[in-house]
Design a protein around this nucleic acid. Structure first.
Length: 428
RNA sequence: GUGGACGUAGCUCAGUUGGUCAGAGCGCCGGGUUGUGGCCCCGGAGGUCGGGGGUUCGAGUCCCCUCGUUCACCCCA
């Protein structure tokens, strides 16, 4: 019974009901974003490899070992997108969106690809929903971007999550901070784990992600980026914090919060959930004022977030929430013995044309089985197309909720059904 | 990339110290008299016990390899 073909490792099919929950989540998010002036953008799943190398950073794990990269038949190096911010900025520059007026507020949703080892909340093809505001450094926008996830979570009824914010500085203050941190790390290197020593050399700020108890203690006294900002960045961050308070978003400042991708500047944030296993960051993002320039465009500020759909689904499930209830089938049309199949289909089509949700048997089942099927589908009514009634120009409508049935004329069928559906079903 | 756990019917799982061990529940299909659901009863379909090799008279049950799943590290949404 081993299927001959299976979905590639780390990928999966979204089947119902998850597929429908995803639709519901996207609908809720789209509504929130649209009412804040965001417009939808859809970029290719494939981009030139160079875009990501430049945009995300040559030294990042994503670029060095997680991209699905290949050369196409024309010899061009392409990669499946591991994230969408660089592609969105590329599109902004390529399509001259700045000429449409600034700022540009864009949102996207779709699959991303990273060749990591799968685990809870982490897949090789996963789906992100995100937004970017390009063209302004206004601190209210930083707060707005952050608040969108919060609004969505609240609307979905989610609890037990925490928003952590920080500033990672700018091109001026970060380098000097990193030097200071490196110096500090050198001094305590013997107290650090193997991993942290490696980080100390390659990406010093990442030591703060270490979960090792000894390292954490040793790092207590380490200088934090949030405390070493230049005056300008300090003001910027303070304004963001103030706006968050105005927006009523609860948060905690963590001076040691850092970001994985190279392009971040100033504002950085993460939404973490309790009870979600190791991958508990559901939404994260920040400001990236240097990215557009990095990609060969003019100096252009930007800020955005991205949210992991699968992780959001896990959070909803962990909290017993369901964003989607499938609509109930109104009518199941069942044919009794001796009835022409065409009569059943004619009625089915007539109902659908009248706007009534309806389905019928396509497995050549007997009446009893059709009744069971109707029940299993959760249909409210069953239209029993019987030989005798049909000869009288009538049809039987059985109400599965009330366990009652009536006969009506074919001409009065649709109105009768409408009436019964509108009357609802009292508890029986 | 590293480490641990696990892989028996569609699903959730039982399967003793290797010898009726190929099972249960749920689901699915059919039936319980002639045209009717949900409960109940009866019956049925469905499994190379992930795959390969080995040990043995004999292996889901032991060993090796392999594939897959899963959890953690790494990293990140």
């Amino acid at each position: 019974m081993e299927p001959r073909y299976r979905a590639p490792r780390g990928t999966f099919d979204f089947i119902y009901p998850e597929s429908e929950k995803v639709e519901a989540l996207l609908a809720a998010a789209s509504e929130i974003l649209a009412t804040r002036g965001y417009r939808r953008i859809s970029t290719p799943m494939l981009e030139s490899t160079e875009l990501f190398r430049r945009g995300i950073g040559e030294a990042t794990d994503i670029v060095t070992k997680e991209m699905y990269t290949f050369e196409d038949q024309g010899g061009e190096s392409l990669s499946l997108r591991p994230e969408a911010t660089a592609p969105v900025i590329r599109a902004y520059l390529e399509r001259s969106l700045f000429a449409q007026g600034l700022p540009q507020k864009l949102f996207y949703a779709g699959p991303m690809f990273r060749r990591e080892r799968p685990q809870a909340g982490r897949f090789r093809q996963f789906h992100q929903l995100g937004a970017e505001v390009i063209g302004t450094r206004d601190t209210f926008i930083d707060a707005e971007i952050i608040s969108i996830s919060d609004v969505l979570f609240k609307r979905l009824g989610l609890e037990a999550y925490e928003l952590v914010v920080n500033s990672v500085g700018c091109g001026e203050c970060r380098p000097s901070y990193v030097r200071m941190l490196s110096g500090f790390l050198e001094g305590i290197s013997q107290a650090l784990c193997e991993e942290c020593r490696r980080r100390s050399r390659e990406n010093p700020m990442r030591v703060f992600d270490c979960k090792n108890e000894r390292c954490r203690e040793a790092l207590e006294a380490a200088p934090a980026i949030g405390e070493q900002l230049c005056p300008e960045c300090r003001v910027h961050f303070q304004e963001v914090v103030d706006h968050l308070e105005t927006l009523g978003v609860a948060f905690r400042v963590d001076p040691k919060l850092v970001r994985g991708l190279d392009y971040y500047t100033n504002t950085a944030f993460e939404f973490k959930f309790e009870g979600l296993s190791a991958q508990n960051t559901v939404s994260a993002g920040g400001r990236y004022d240097g990215l557009a320039e990095q990609l060969g465009g003019p100096e252009t500020p930007g800020v955005g977030f991205s949210l992991g759909i699968e992780r959001l689904l896990l959070a909803l499930e962990a909290q017993g929430l369901d964003p989607f209830t499938p609509p109930r089938l109104s009518v199941f049309v069942a044919g009794a013995p001796g009835v022409e199949r065409s009569s059943v289909l004619d009625i089915l089509v007539a109902l659908r044309e009248a706007g009534v949700s309806a389905d019928a048997d396509f497995m050549d089942r007997g009446l009893k089985s059709q009744m069971k099927q109707a029940d299993r589908l959760g249909a409210r009514l069953v239209l029993i197309v019987g030989k005798d009634e049909l000869e009288r120009g009538e049809i039987t409508i059985r109400d599965l909720d009330r366990s009652s049935q009536v006969e009506v004329s074919l001409a009065g069928m649709v109105p009768a059904i409408r009436e019964m559906l509108e009357a609802g079903s009292e508890d029986v």
